[in-house]
Amino acid sequence: MRRTDVVVAGVALCGCAIAFGLTYRFDTMPAAMVSGLGAEVFPRLVIGVIAFLAVLAAFGIGNPPMETPAPVPRMVWMTAAVLFAFVGAVALIGMWPAAIVFLVGLGLLWGERSVWKLSASALVLCAALYGLFVRVLGGNFPKGLIANLWS
């Protein structure tokens, strides 16, 4: 048994236990109204299958043994943080200003040195997307807290 396989299987089994527990929180139907399988039966069946496969994976059955992957590089954490920060920025300043700030910010983080080039490409992309999704398709994107307070 390899440590990584056991960890992966352990995480999967924990997920299964939580999901199985959640099936007990489904609303119950009067027995007379239930014809056939109840709402909880199928998910439990699937959870059972995942748990069985996780046990097989823990013992290395059906999978080649897995080496421990190298640590996640710092750049991945920073990029992921920027992606989630973008959602907060949208809520605050709105979709399109947040998109321009993001395009320039992530570009700089990923090693581009020319802010002008990044800004120009960000403006062109956002204008194109705004034209297509807002003007042509009639979409309505978040304006942000600040714009809402202003208006």
Partner: peptide, 22 residues
């Protein structure tokens, strides 16, 4: 540095647009 941030914005717009939901 230009391509992938643009892919992300496309992804956000694509995920948001159908239901207009963050």
């Amino acid at each position: 540095a230009f391509l992938w941030p643009a892919v992300f914005i496309l992804s956000v717009v694509g995920a948001y647009a159908p239901n207009q939901a963050m």
